[in-house]
Design a protein around this nucleic acid. Structure first.
Lengths: 329, 329
DNA sequence: GCAAGAGGCGGCAATCTTGCCGCATACGGT
DNA sequence: ACCGTATGCGGCAAGATTGCCGCCTCTTGC
């Protein structure tokens, strides 16, 4: 069984799970069409015959198929791996909860939380300092919380410290507040050469995973932020966003203002109709590349220091973060 | 050749057209992946062998394939039918151009323009009146321009009149201004029963056409707005939108305020995680149903009066529109 | 109670896709 | 000039999809 097919089967099962009555190919096809997925009735029946065999569904006379309890359970387990739109949804919720005002340079922003062992902190600080100094972070601030010091809703236990860094979706929040609707296209690894972005080597769409792409890449040690910082050649975390073409100029201006309040992170703003870093765009849209907020932690992890990262973690008032020069001294 | 395959082939050709050098399966697959379309290299080569035969592409040694001039032309023609994202892009541009302020109830909004023969106007007015009175329109205003009276950038010629109605995407604009990012899911025909929405019977995704869905349905005489107005049972134009779940409450409040300023049109606001009118939603999103701004014109067309409609037409200051009771007297 | 229509089912046979493979080039570096 | 790597090509065959059909089984209206 093909990964692709499996996914389609899940789509079919999902429709069944949302209905209390048995459904047949036609109705299911209709429901899927509404969800933007085209599949012929015949194909659906074909899949259903497979799931029948697997015991996930069963026929109810000629009235259609129903999920069996096994099928229902299967769907729930599958959801864990395939919670489509989960990260995307969480991101949106957090963005909506922001109240950061560009003018005042204060208000709640979305942060990532990373936890590491207290004994590793000095080394980690040295690494992060290099990353911040080279401008490979998102913004110029962070917050380090020691045991007992509450950071948002997280309190590091004994022997732990927690590091809060601004999350790249905070940019979306600010843009939205300024009337620019920014959508996430994907997150991935960006190859840089001579400190300039070259192209994405790996991408993961936000709406296909339960983890932030960068978290995955950090865990997989697929980044080389330190090298990028040191030599200008390396692979860092970044994400690709889109905005409506008429908003491009405004976005460019906002990028500058963000920089000035300590939220710089927009590396590139494309031109209307032009692919950006080889990424094709729909007519009327322009692309942007934003640095990953977890890049400093990626560098830390590269040094062999164990970290636990939680992107899109929570909201924190920007004022609580301090400039890196102060914290990482 | 299958419609589906044809579309995929166009995707492949499009990639080729954006490159100046010849490309092979691998690079094309990579580019398509960035665009969110998965296709194996092999499949792409398979398609390329087809287009080779059709003379749309040609091999350049072992360096890859290139579009021929025939292929380039083909792509352009195909674009007319398949200008993906064209309407969506236009809609976004217009939304971004709005400056309507909910508080003041004034500012530019997106309108549809409809042209009809002056001699039909009295009859049309009677029809539209019924639609507006029954609340099947978007908002309670419109503008009728006679020959010589400029409406936006359009001046009706002799014997013509032009009718401007508020376009349903104006709602998106207001929402955006209030910090709620609203995305268009699809437009379609909504079956109503007892004046209440029942379900969508036809849908067209915005990003797959060059025409506004409702325009198409009006031309095809597939609506029965008059009947809906008269008996409560019928089929009207409507569209389906989505917003982030945390914004649902705010949207509900805004719907009321919109109503009060004369921009009422939100028929339904869903509940987080619940399908709305059978339309499934991603986790963390809620659906909304908005009446089509062209419904009054649909009713007019149903009466056999010839109209030309242009949805997403242009921006017009809301103050220039008058309440229907005044204009349609 | 009966006919019509909607919707469901699965066999069969075309097509469409894709994985696997062996082989040919193109390009950069030594 | 020579080698290694990346990329390209298309044959073959196994799956995956889907159209076409003939045949059931409810529901509904009369």
């Amino acid at each position: 069984m093909d990964e692709r097919s499996r996914r389609k089967i899940l789509d079919v099962l999902r429709v069944l799970s949302e209905s209390d009555k048995p459904l047949g190919g036609t109705r299911i096809a209709h429901a899927l069409a509404l969800a933007g997925k085209d599949m012929s009735q015949r194909t659906i029946r074909y899949y259903l015959s497979i799931t029948d065999e697997e015991g996930l569904t069963q026929q109810v006379g000629r009235r259609g198929r129903q999920l069996t309890s096994v099928g229902r359970r299967e769907l729930e387990t599958a959801y864990v791996v395939d919670k489509v739109g989960f990260v995307a949804a969480r991101a949106e919720a957090l963005i909506f909860g922001m109240d950061f005002k560009l003018r005042q340079g204060r208000g709640k922003v979305v942060v990532n939380l990373s936890v590491l062992r207290a004994e590793d902190l000095p080394r980690a600080k040295a690494v992060m300092r290099r990353v911040f100094r080279a401008g490979y972070s998102l913004g110029d601030r962070l917050l380090i919380g020691r045991p007992g010091q509450k950071v948002g809703s997280y309190t590091p236990g004994p022997g732990e410290v927690v590091v809060a860094t601004v999350c790249s979706i905070a940019i979306n929040g600010v843009m939205l507040d300024e009337g620019v609707p920014m959508t996430n296209r994907f997150g991935g690894l960006l190859q840089v050469s001579d400190h300039k972005p070259l192209r994405f080597t790996q991408i993961i769409n936000y709406d296909g995973t339960t983890l932030d792409p960068l978290e995955i890449f950090i865990k997989g040690r697929m980044t080389s932020v330190s090298q990028a910082v040191a030599t200008g050649e390396g692979v860092i975390g970044a994400s690709f966003r889109e905005i409506p073409a008429p908003a491009a100029e405004k976005a460019r201006r906002l990028a500058g203002r963000l920089e000035r309040v300590g939220l710089g992170g927009i590396i590139l703003v494309g031109r209307p109709g032009q692919p950006l870093l080889e990424v094709p765009l729909a007519t009327g849209r322009v692309g942007l590349v934003v640095r990953g907020g977890l890049n400093p932690m990626a560098a830390v992890e590269e040094e062999g220091i164990v970290t636990t990262n939680r992107a899109f973690s929570q909201l924190l008032p920007f004022e609580q973060l301090s400039r890196w020069e102060e914290v990482l001294a």
